[in-house]
Design a protein around this nucleic acid. Sequence first.
RNA 1: GCUCGGAUGGCGGAAUAGGUAGACGCACAGGACUUAAAAUCCUGUGGGCAUUCGUGCCCGUGUGGGUUCGAGUCCCACUCCGAGCACCA
Length: 849
Amino acid sequence: MNSYPFNEIEKKWQKFWEANEIYKTSENIGNPKFYVLDMFPYPSGAGLHIGHPEGYTATDIISRYKRMKGYNVLHPMGFDAFGLPTERFSMVSGIHPKDATERNIKVFREQLKMLGFDYDWSREINTTDPKYFKWTQWMFILIYNSWFDDELQKARPISELPIPDNLKDPLEVEQYLDAHRLAYIDYVPVNWCEELGTVLANEEIDEWREKGYSVVRKPMRQWMLRITKYAQRLLEDLELVDWPDSTKEMQKNWIGRSEGAEIEFEIIGNPKRIKVYTTRPDTLFGATYLVLAPEHPLVSEITTEANRDLVEDYIRQTSLKTDRERTEIVKVKSGVPTGAFSINPATGEKIPIWIADYVLMQYGTGAIMAVPGHDERDFDFAKTFGLPIRLVVVPEGSNDWDINSSAFVDEGINVNSSNEEISIDGLPTRLAKEKITDWLEKKGIGRKKIQYKLRDWLFSRQRYWGEPIPIIFFEDGTKRALDLDELPLLLPEIAEFKPSGTGESPLATVPGWVRFIDRKTGKVGGYETNTMPQWAGSCWYYLRYIDPHNEAWFCDPEKEKYWMSPNGVDLYVGGAEHAVLHLLYARFWHKVLYDYGYVSTPEPFYKLFHQGLILGEDGRKMSKSLGNVINPDDVVKKYGADSLRLFEMFLGPLQDSKPWSTTGIEGVHRFLNRVWRLFVNGDGQINPEIKDLPLTSEQEYLLHSTIKKVAEDIENLKFNTAISQLMIFVNEISKYDEKPLCALEKFLLCLAPFAPHICEEIWSKMGKSRSIALEKFPEYDEKKATKKIVEIVVQVNSKIRARIYVEFDTSQEEVVKIALSEPNVKKYLNGKEVKKIVFVPNKLLNIIC
RNA sequence: GCUCGGAUGGCGGAAUAGGUAGACGCACAGGACUUAAAAUCCUGUGGGCAUUCGUGCCCGUGUGGGUUCGAGUCCCACUCCGAGCACCA
């Protein structure tokens, strides 16, 4: 293929942009701003994936377009570099993760530069840089030193937490504070591999099991963040942002607010009570047994001697299952009776207490009242073990339900639901819920409760390659968080990155880390050996871009206000795989900062967009094993960066998954060659057919409709149709022997955000001295963007019978007159009476007869 | 199982306040240029029937119904595909 010299051109302009700081974001904070953000990549050893440039090109086009529209644009890039893959690479290779990270970042940075993105590289950040994670650590301490005021629904300093008068002992006070901090230590089940002596990530489990290792759920000491306190705000504030509905929906479901009741059941022969949570208190009369999660603290206490072996064996089996396995759908339920009994407070009936792994300790109270007549899972369980099933709700308008063949789970009308004190028979579900809850409340054994599925955030990792948690534990049992002047707390240099074998991180093997004399207190203590999860660094990076070199503060408040007001980041583009975790954690983190007035908006990201996947040419996900991986370096070498950028945008709608196509990229590459030849002749001179001519009215329409379409499509992130309009322009304008200069110049300005290198080259050949990136985006004239002569479809009884051409905005009368003279129209009217006329101006005329 | 998407030529996709289905690109076919090829340019291309070669008619957006002068678009039922979540009480 004979191509324009893209290789030379692209390198030349990339150097020019860098040398002349064309994309350096100005610190002049007077102009209107636009903050467009990419989800920063994890610099893996494999280098940039062909999918990366998709979202990055999209933001690049927006960024360049907004700059040309006069905005002060912030479009930064950085690297989210802590994490498991690098640590694992280091274990095998012995190369320090810091060195591996540095090397990977270098590759990524070069690849991103090769694609000509307009990042302001002077703002590059790296989450593993001590200058950066100093502030991640500081924010962790801020969270640690906070409690959540339920009244005010916000975080406040722990020093302002009211201490109950009866607490005098300093140790008790400290325990009280710890129980309210937004960062706290708890024992929670994690994936423990005994043979490896380490905790595994969910994604590692299968791999190690295949190698014959066993993985069990085992409670271990972990740092937790109390994100659940923010559940309501995280839910409500979704109203404030312009996100895809499906993403909002996913976050809502993840937070999982439900309204129901907490009910206390007595235990026969034990003064303690079992609390259950239910969304259907109206079905209480149908509760025929209780089920506790196997991990429930009361299990060992209530289990009878006769059932002890059975129960303990079941608990052991359960620990071998991961949460995912426990929650897989199986029709045959497993469980064992504890031998203990409870009383159904509504019926007064003695009901058995079971344990089963379909009840999870993390949700609700870890115990349920089972209503097999009206819950699928309880129904299956009751069928399996021959437990009684009772009908207490029937569908409205009917008075029966075959309770032996399936559970009735919808709302309906209560039946069989009365005792001496209360009756909810005949009430619809909503009223029945209220009445029974009131009754329970009066008796002091139940209350209304709002429950969230959201769990607290497990924040610690037993790994080396993460931010150290800046807390010192002293020998006397006290602890303290480091002060700002002691940060960053750096990772100690170690030679081995293998786990300690005790379940602690490799940091536990460093003598100077776990035992030293604290300079500030003179006491002997040791640092926390856990590190933070990869999510930590990505919770606030968008703030650091605003002021990346500030040594005194994480971000200058004035600059923060300028870039984040009024709604936060203006556009955030990244994969849908982050719809829940990253996007929820970052919102939480931001809200803590907001509560302290450190940021000026309640939400970090105003508009969010997810790019789709780029699949292999065979329509399947790209993977090494399928051999369908496309490498961006190869593509750039063969067709140039502009072609790759343009093609990824032309493939289809940004949010859709779409397959790669080798012939497809040749198509857009051909288009760029056509553009080149339109402007430049064989000797590299400007095409002599380009002349300074006035536009014909056809050319005027072509130009203005193109500018309009391109501008509107860019604003709506519909790049595929913008590019097709640019192709139409080139096809049309090429037909003229003499090409009008001013139309071509404006066309070039429209193309520049998509294919910046080729446009810079042509622009400079045309004698322009300033970078095209700094020029104004052309304006269009609405009138000129409208067709002068329009085609009107003429239908007779809704069938197309003719097409006529009239001036724009011709009246109905006029159009009807012309239409009626069309022979084919006459033929179908055939002298019949016209009953009705439908007229859509400039489009259609339908004659009904 | 639940939730959310989606289904349009040989392929990727255009077109939704309901108004010309198939823009643009690919692929394919024919032609021009060339000793030849590549590149480039031009023409054609949903299916069927008819044609005086101008065009005309019928069918056509996963399936079956419905609303409407008019449905790819709205409503109901179904089939298939994808994604996310999942014994969440």
